[in-house]
Every structure is written in structure tokens, then in C-alpha cells.
Amino acid sequence: MKRWLPWTIAGALLVALPFVYNAPYPLHIMVVILIWSFAYTSWSIMGRFGLVSLGHGGFMGIGAYVTALLWNHAGMSPWLSIPMALLASATIAILVAYPCFRFRITGHYFALVTLALSGIVLQVITATRDHTGGSLGYTPERHQGGSSIYALQFIDKETWYLIALGVWAAGIVIWYRVERSMMRYALEAISEDEDAAAAAGVHVTWEKLKVTVLSAMMTALAGALYCQYQMFISPDTVSGISISLQMVFAVVVGGIYVSLGPTIGAIITILLAEVLRISFGTAAVGYDNLVYGVLLVLFIIFLPKGILGGLMEARARPQAATAAQPKASRA
């Protein structure tokens, strides 16, 4: 019971926030952080098991574009088109990942295959510019009369904040569900030694495929939400290689093995991008990617568990040391 108390208080504060403090710009930044936190959490659900995908920009793009295109061209409500987008993204995930897992393409090679997926989705969006607007971007049509639950469009930021908060919280819950499941045991084992995992009875391909599809669908949902919130999507902002790399960067910086690591990563990356944008304006376009790249290298070398992971480890270390003492003497 006590364990839940801090979570409940934090949750209540987060829910209450927009009713107390609703200045548009900070609220906007919060919504963006929550949506990206969810996307990064989605990536980390498989990334933490050594399944480093550079294709998640592709899944995010599928989520955003399928939702927007079905709305504009078929008048389909996002309540229907988002599940379809998730299904599309799951299908693509299976098409790409199954052959990889079946033929044991792992590590760097898996990253490269998925990297191609990011590129392909970006190219498809650009090439079908008659329908998708290409690199100029795409805008879902505004529903007549502003806010509408049917169209999943809301004028006020408070509603969006609450939606994003709910989805983000669901992402964290899924993270914990995976953490406590037997699937985690299997995936940890697979990430170390696929043969030994198979000898223990683990269906290696199936376990990897499950987590990949879960992660891809969550990422597509993040893309769809981003689209509905921003009401403007372009290949550069929701798909492609740079978005995929940004996910890896944010998660590594925040902490890949901890539940709130991706969230910390999102806060840092988005605040960084905002600071650069505000202080340098258009002169700094692309600087954030440069900074990401340098920081990514530094983090992988000096703080591989990320900021939150590193902090938690530093806090746990003195306790673990004292706890290990009697055991060591017994051995």
C-alpha cells in the first residue's frame, strides 16, 4: 500500500496541473513531452533487450499518416483509423522482423535492416506526394465546429494534456507489465544467448516477435496522437531516420533499463530543442541533431545506463555493498 502512495500523489498532481496552471506555451511543451515520452517508452520496451530498432520512425510515420489519410480521404473517424494504423504497423513489423528473427539477424545487422525500414517509409511518403503532401507535410482537415470527440480534435490544450497524460501513463503501466512478466526472463535470456534460451524451452522467434509487434503498435499510436494534436505532420517530424535516431538517443540518455528513463530522455531532448530554437532561431536548424550525436557518444561511453539509470544505481550501490557483505564471507 505504501509503495503506491508516492505514485498516487504524483499522478493526482499531474492530473490536477492544467486546472491550476494552464499557460498555453508550457502546457504545449508538456503535451509534446508526454507524447514523445510515450514513443520513447514504446521503443525502449524492445530496445532494452538488445533489440535496437532504427525503424521506429517508420512505425511512428505509419501511425500518423494512416490516421490522417483515412480521415481526409475516407472521412474515417480516428477512433476507427487509429486501430487500423496500429494494425498496419503491426503487419509491417511482422514482415520486417519475422525474417530477421527466423534467420537470426541480430545486433548491428538487425539495426541496419530496421534502418532501411525508416528510410523506406520516408521515401514512400515523399514519393506519393499527390496524396501525402510529400516533404511539404500534411494537415488533417479541421472538423466543423472545432472540438469534436468523433474527430478526436480538440481546440483546448487541457484536453490534450489529459489525453497525452493518460496514454503516457498507460505506456508506463505496459512497461511494468512487461517487467514483471515471464516474457522479460525470456527476452533477457535471448539477448544474452539464443541457443541457451532455446535449450531452456524458449521459442526465441516468437518471443522476439511479440515484443516487437507490441513496441511497433505503441509507437504507431504515438504517431497518431502526435498527428491529432499538432494537426500537421511532415516526413521529417514523425518518420525517417532522424526520428529513429532521436528515439535511441533520448532513451540512452534517460536510461534504457528504467521505467521513467525514456520520459527523462524526452524532457531533456525536447527542452534542448526548444532552447536551441528560442536562442538561435532558424540559424540553429539541425543543431539539435548535432548535439544529440555528440551526447550519444559521450553517454554510451561514460554513462551507459543513462541519467536516471545512473542515478538509481549510485543510490542503490551503498545499500547493495552492505547487503553483499555477509554473503561474501559465507562464500
Binding site: Y185, A196, A200
Partner: peptide
């Protein structure tokens, strides 16, 4: 599996 405890190594095998 070094990332799992001794007990969890064996639980994994018992489960799967």
C-alpha cells in the same frame, strides 16, 4: 544468463 539471478535462470527453464 548473467543478467538474471541464479534462481531466475532456473525459473525461466522451469516456465518455458
Amino acid at each position: 544468463f548473467r543478467r538474471l539471478s541464479i534462481l531466475d535462470n532456473v525459473i525461466l527453464a522451469g516456465f518455458y
